[in-house]
Simulated scan of single mutants.
Amino acid sequence: MVCSRCVKVVRTELQENGIDILNVELGKMSYRENGNKDLKIINEVLEQNDFEIIVSQEDILTENIKHKLIELLNDLPIKDNKVFSKYLSDILNTDYSKISKVFSYTTGKTIEQYFINLKIEKVKELIQSNQYNFTEISQLIGYSSVGNLSAQFKKHTGKSLTEYKNMNKNFRKSLDKI
């Protein structure tokens, strides 16, 4: 689960299927077990909604990393003093080399690649909001210049910032698909 709507869907769908939910938050759910069928129902509901149960410690760490990076992007502007390797290491209380190895192993991409993809999607969102110009967006997202943002955006989308804005269409990816 990567957003508040995901939490709402999981809570609602499970309650409608008779699961006694204690708590649902990003990436976590707890429930009061009422019988042997509960886990099967939970799996079915999650699968129907494109979610899955994560049980390995590596997958749990990977999901925590994703959530922390998404939270970082939701708290704009990104502070220049936030080196995300230190940020992740501190917030997850784990050595960054372990965090990095586990993430790469479980996702097939580096944390840096994932974070760039998240930032590009955030840029698309900000462009579509029409609240900020490109310079302001580059500052909010933590780029040193609009030129750096433009180059990275074009590299990842194949379109310039202006081309994307002029398309007036939503070509954003869902965060759970990044």
Rank of each mutant, 00 (worst) to 15 (best):
Leu76Cys: 11
Leu92His: 01
Thr107Asp: 02
Ser145Asn: 01
Val24Trp: 05
Ser150Gln: 05
Val55Thr: 15
Asn130Gln: 13
Asp75Lys: 15
Asp20Pro: 01
Val123Lys: 03
Ile42Leu: 14
Lys173Ser: 10
Lys40Val: 14
Asn170Cys: 00
Ile116Thr: 05
Ile53Trp: 08
Asn64His: 14
Val45Pro: 07
Thr12Ala: 01
Gly142Pro: 10
Asp176Trp: 10
Asn170Ile: 02
Ala151Glu: 08
Leu39Ser: 11
Glu16Ser: 13
Gly147Thr: 10
Lys86Tyr: 09
Glu163Lys: 09
Asn23Pro: 01
Asn74Gly: 15
Tyr164Thr: 04
Phe134Asp: 04
Glu63Asp: 14
Ile116Cys: 01
Glu33Pro: 07
Asp95Thr: 05
Asp80Leu: 07
Tyr87Ala: 02
Thr107Val: 04
His156Trp: 00
Ile141Val: 13
Ile19His: 04
Thr157Val: 09
Tyr114Arg: 11
Lys173Thr: 04
Thr110Cys: 05
Ala151Lys: 14
Tyr132Gln: 06
Ile42Glu: 10
Lys66His: 08
Ile178Arg: 02
Lys86Trp: 04
Leu22Gly: 07
Lys8Met: 07
Tyr132Thr: 04
Lys68Tyr: 13
Leu126Gln: 12
Ser174His: 11
Asp75Pro: 01
Phe153Ala: 07
Thr94Gly: 01
Ile78Gln: 09
Leu76Met: 10
Ser85Leu: 03
Ala151Cys: 00
Lys8Ala: 09
Gly18His: 02
Thr162Arg: 12
Tyr143Glu: 08
Thr107Leu: 03
Ile99Gln: 06
Tyr87Ser: 07
Ile111Leu: 06
Asn64Phe: 11
Lys86Phe: 09
Asn168Met: 00
Ser97Tyr: 03
Glu47Ser: 15
Tyr31Pro: 00
Asn34Ser: 14
Ala151Pro: 00
Lys28Val: 12
Gly35Ser: 08
Glu121Asn: 13
Ile21Arg: 09
Arg172Asn: 08
Leu126Gly: 03
Leu118Arg: 02
